[in-house]
């Protein structure tokens, strides 16, 4: 297994206010990793650095040995925490837009997932419920044959039944050997699909561990440990 994502001494400040402090981490391919932390702990900042939407104040970041740039964007599929899609477009139009944009986009996969979730490709985004919009965006992201999927809060806006569906989409559609980085604070809902977790606290990494080690070492779930570490 090769290192897919590597952060070396990563710092990020917003006008002098630190958001990430000395983040060092290496993630290999073939894992589903939870990026966990309370609000304001730096999850989205780290994710935006990975996607090149922000530049580090200090430190280095490599994806598949390449610095963030055109090469890394080809292999990273990103679900942002806020939508950037034009709400007036139909799902069908967005799919062709994605096909133009990403050479690894699998059209058939996208339409298969839409029909499985009974979403009509002829519908416009602005006619859909919040949960359905989120499903559409996740389908677009998971339809790419990427090496790294970065999902920022993929289940926050949907009901518990739809969460199972979304986890199913994630599990059955990511490329083998790819890694998925999921940020969330709804830990109990996704804990079973994670094999590693990263805890972020005030912009610093406070724990990197496998889920099995937490459960067998501490005899408690990741959710329970999280509540303990981040008790207010």
């Amino acid at each position: 297994m090769s290192t897919l994502l590597e952060c070396k001494g990563l710092f990020k400040s917003y006008s002098g206010r630190p958001a990430l402090k000395n983040v060092n981490l290496a993630i290999e391919s073939g894992h589903i990793v939870g990026l966990l932390g309370p609000n304001g702990s730096g999850k989205t900042t780290l994710i935006k650095l990975i996607n090149g939407l922000l530049t580090p104040t200090q430190g280095e970041l490599y994806i598949n040995q390449n610095p963030v740039g055109v090469e890394s964007k080809k292999i990273v599929s990103y679900l942002p925490d806020h939508t950037y899609l034009d709400m007036n477009l139909k799902v069908r139009d967005i799919i062709s837009y994605f096909m133009d944009f990403y050479e690894d986009f699998d059209e058939k996969k996208a339409y298969d997932m839409l029909s499985k979730l009974r979403i009509n490709p002829g519908d416009k985004l602005n006619t859909m419920s919040k949960g359905t919009k989120e499903k559409v965006q996740l389908i677009l992201v998971m339809s790419r044959r990427a090496k790294l999927y970065v999902l920022d809060e993929p289940i926050a806006g949907v009901d518990p039944a739809a969460r199972d569906y979304i986890l199913d989409i994630i599990l059955s559609n990511y490329e083998e050997d790819a890694t998925i980085l999921i940020s969330t604070h709804l830990i109990a809902d996704i804990e079973n699909i994670l094999d590693q977790v990263i805890f972020l606290k005030h912009g610093e990494i406070s724990l990197i561990s496998s889920v099995d080690d937490i459960r067998s070492g501490q005899g408690k779930s990741v959710d329970a440990l999280f509540r303990e570490v981040f008790r207010c």
Partner: peptide
């Protein structure tokens, strides 16, 4: 492994183990 992992809604590496 993948199908079982999806059925169980768990990580494929965990199912593999």
């Amino acid at each position: 492994v993948r199908d079982l992992a999806a059925q169980a809604a768990v990580n494929p590496n965990t199912m593999q183990k």
